[in-house]
Every structure is written in C-alpha cells, then in structure tokens.
Design a protein around this nucleic acid. Structure first.
Length: 451
RNA sequence: GCCGGGGUGCCCGAGUGGACUAAGGGGUGGGCCUUGAGAGCCCAUGUCCUUUAUGGGACGCCCGGGUUCGAAUCCCGGCCCCGGCGCCA
C-alpha cells in the first residue's frame, strides 16, 4: 500500500509530524482524511447500486412483454441515478487524488529538523581544504564545530569564472549574446576534460554493476508528473512549444519512468541504472545566484545513479549511493563534506537527501556537486511501479526509488579548475584518475597538464 | 507529413451488443504424485471498495468522452505501435 494512504488511514499523526517538520500546512492531513472517508462512503453506495442494476440488466434478455418493459424501466431509472451520483464521485475522486498527491514525501526520522539551508547538517568531512585567510572566519563559523582538518594559506585563489576566461577555456560572454545568460561555449581542453570525466564516471559505475542507459532527453507530461512536483515544473522544466514534450532536467526523470506501469519480480530487485544525458534547467528560482561562469547553467551533462529497490532495502541503498559518489570525489582528490539536508530544505519528492559538497577555494565555501535522495514510494506510486513475489504475480507493494548524481559535468569542471590550478605555470593539472582518458591528446592540450 | 493495418491480463491469443466466469495456451507461485527430478493432475495468479469476511461487491480489454437497461464489442476525439511512400543526420 502507498505509504501516504497507509498512514492517513492508520497513523495520521506521523503525517502531521512530517508536515510540521517541513514547516508546511498540517491541516491538509485532516482534509485528506475527510475526503478519503467521504470518497469511500460514496464509492460503496454506488457500488451497491451498480450491483442492483447489474442484476436487473442481466435478466432483461430473458424477459418478455410486461416483465421486460418493467425491468427496462427500472434499470433506466437506476442507471440515471447512478450517473448522477457518479458525477459526485468523480468530483470527489479528483479532489481526493489531488490533495493526496499534494502531500510531500514523509520525512525520515534521521533528517534534521530545520527551517532552511542554514540548518543543514554536515555529517562527515574528507580531505584537507586549503582555506585562504580571508575566508577563515567564515569557514570556521560553518565547519569549526565539526571534525574537519584544514590548512590555512596566504594563497589567493582565482575563481573558475575568471580562470576559464583568462585561459581561453570557455566563452560565457559570447554565449550570453547568442543564447542568453547561463549558457557557455567550452573549448578543446575543457571539452576533453569533460569527456574524460564522463568516461571516468561511466567506467566507475559499470564496475559497480550498473546498467548504462542513454534515455530519452524529452518526456511527456504524464511521466514527468510522476517524478517531479509542481514547483519543479515551474522552476526547472523547459517545454517544447505546441507538443506534449518537456526537456529533461536530469536522467533521473526518464530512468524513473523506464518501468512506469510495471510490476517487477522481487528477485530482479535492486535494479541499478547509470544514466547519461544532457540536463536542461530553467533555474527560475535562482535569480542573481552564481551568475558568473559555468557553475549554475541551463544545460550540462550528467551521469546519474538510479536505483529501484525493495522498500526494506532502500535506506541501505541510500547510504551506498552516497558512498559511490564519495568514492568518485575521493579519487578526484578534492576535499568534500557530506551534508544531511534538513527538513525545511528538502524537496517534496525526497524523504531524505544528502548533498556532497566540494571545497571551492576561491569562494571559500563548500558547494553542491552531488545530490543523493531516497524518494521512497513518492515516484513509484505516481508512476505505478510495484513489485511482486514472482513474474506476473500479484503485487506486494510499491518499489522504492533512489537517485544520486555521479558527475555533473560543468560543476565538476569548476571544482577541478579551482582546485587543480597551478598559478605559477598558468596551467591546470589533471586529476590522476582522469589522466588515462587524456593521454592520447597530450600534444593537443593547451592549458591542461598531465605531468 | 500522407496512406494502410493494428493495440485484449505477466506473455501469446480468441471474442464484433447480453451465458452471473474475458475462451484456450504459456509463464509464475503453491499443492498432489515421486526416493529425487521431470511428466501428469489440482488450486492460485489485475485494481479498488466493504466497522474483516474460508465472505460480498464494483471496476478492468491503449487513454478520454458518448450511445444503450447493458459496451472488449457501436460512435466521436486523442496517444502509441507495425508496414508502405515522402523527407532526413
């Protein structure tokens, strides 16, 4: 049974608590309960009337003359009453479904309760960030109370936006003229580095047992509604004019839709998919944020981890997915921290979310590179994805779905650029794990150095 | 884009206005049989509702409307798939 409906009928207090933790309307739960009860009552009434009608209707072909006419008349009357009542029911049913779907995912107990991103909780650190003196206070204020090693330096780091321009790696200004803000042209070195990142992430996930998928880059509204919430539509989704098609904002969307309306045999779970796709985002809710460079852009390429799991295994998988992302960033040798996103900052879809934030020396901050969510049955309910004991058997419940970034190219590039820039040489060193992918181009590289 | 054919359960496939069961086969789960396996036989195998019943009921044949006492079946609109033509990286 869908968890929202289960708790609505058996333990509504849990839903009220979740709503409170999210700083969202608690009354919606009681409205939903009332609507659900009313709907069930009316449905039951109609079912009984339909039963009567079916009995009359079925005997009609065996009747003659007066009996026949009487029965038809009775059936007609019943039929009309039912039709009227059904209008009420379909109305109720729509309202009920709408309100049920508007309830955000139930937050997990381990999610810190907090109002906004300032209350997100760092849970572990890796690496030793180099902190410029001018950022030290800020750094300590945010991270000082946690177990973090760091190194104070006199060095003044240059931001990636300035670097790519100075080194001729990208042209954001020209892209602005031809496409608008938050677009970019990347040139040889950066494109090759991007390709290397992609190849690296793909190879990494293939070794972990993921099935590599290139999904549709556009989706119809129906499947998209199953994987994102209404706000997401407004804030991030581009629509194709005059068609029922939307550009995907991440491979998560088509990967979740891959098993739409299916019942998956238990023994096939978990299903692990590594998606590769471009991602298109309006970034509508981000005016003025990260306007320079290629940190926050309208399009990028992303390698995404996506898992369908049994409900009882999804929390284990959540830890594994963030673990894989961490492995990737450890291998790239860039300091990071893992943040447990607090209740108020959690989107409607996720029950719990970890961000992996890497150290950006020029900003003096950790910045999000990876977002790893357990969406439990939020998406699987909407997309009708269940699991069963055996192939073709009756379903036992909804699967859980999880998603996590492996590598989002433009962001990963900014992290590499800032962390691997060697000012004395005006060069960018290539992380060890990527060298193998770039060796064959070594004589063509202008700014990247393989050592 | 145009013309033609099609969409039935987990799969194949019958059914073109009314049998209180969507035939039949396959798959899957369980049982019987067997020293064990296989074969064979039996049962089960969509969703929802029902103040919980070895119970009862509604719905379900691509989606949405309509006609009818009654629709998988007839009508209208949409989506998708296959074939042919056109266009095309």
């Amino acid at each position: 049974m869908w968890s929202i409906l289960y708790y609505l009928r058996n333990n509504p207090e849990k839903l009220r608590w979740s709503q409170r933790a999210r700083f969202e309307d608690e009354n919606i739960i009681d409205i939903a309960i009332k609507l659900d009860n009313k709907w069930r009552k009316v449905k039951n009434e109609i079912d009984q009337m339909k039963h009567k009608l079916n009995i009359v209707s079925r005997k009609i072909p065996r009747l003659k003359d007066d009996e026949y006419r009487r029965a038809v008349k009775e059936a007609r009357t019943l039929s009309n009453i039912i039709k009227q009542k059904e209008k009420l029911l379909s109305d109720l049913s729509l309202k009920r479904e709408k309100i049920l779907r508007s309830i955000p995912n139930i937050i997990h107990e381990s999610v810190p309760v907090g109002r906004d991103e300032t209350e997100n909780r760092p849970i572990r650190y890796w690496g030793k960030p180099k902190v410029s003196k001018k950022f030290l206070d800020l750094f300590l204020k945010e991270n000082g109370k946690y177990n973090v090693k760091y190194e104070v330096t006199d060095q003044n780091f240059i931001g990636h936006a300035d670097l790519v321009e100075q080194l001729g790696l990208a042209d954001v200004r020209k892209a602005g003229q031809v496409a608008g803000a938050r677009f970019f042209y990347l040139f040889t070195d950066l494109v090759l580095l991007e390709m290397a990142l992609i190849r690296y992430a793909i190879d990494f996930l293939l070794r972990k047992g993921f099935v590599l998928v290139e999904p549709p880059f556009m989706l119809r509204r129906k499947p998209l509604e199953g994987v994102i919430s209404f706000e997401d539509f407004e804030d991030m989704i581009y629509k194709i004019e005059k068609e029922d098609l939307y550009l995907i904002a991440t491979a998560e969307h088509p990967l979740a839709a891959l098993h739409m309306n299916e019942t998956i045999p238990k023994k096939d779970l978990p299903l692990l998919y590594a998606g590769i796709s471009p991602c298109f985002r309006k970034e509508a809710g981000a005016h003025g944020k990260d306007t320079k460079g290629i940190f926050r852009v309208h399009q990028f390429i992303k390698i995404e981890q996506f898992v369908y799991s049994l409900p009882e295994e999804s929390w284990e998988w959540h830890e594994k997915l963030i673990g894989y992302a961490e492995e990737i960033w450890r291998e790239l040798e860039i300091p990071y921290r893992i943040v447990n996103i607090c209740s108020g900052d959690l989107g409607a879809v996720a029950a719990k979310k970890y961000d992996l934030e890497v150290w950006m020396p020029a900003q003096g901050k950790y910045r999000e590179m990876v977002s790893c969510s357990n969406t439990t049955d939020y998406q699987s309910y909407r997309l009708n994805i269940r699991y069963s004991v055996s192939r073709g058997g009756p379903s036992e419940g909804y699967v859980h779905t999880l998603n996590s970034t492996a590598i989002a190219t433009t962001r990963a590039l900014t992290a590499i650029i800032e962390n691997y820039y060697v000012p004395e040489e005006k060069k960018i060193r290539v992380p060890k794990v990527l060298k193998g992918y770039l060796e064959s181009y070594s004589d063509l590289l202008n700014v990247l150095v393989l050592d």
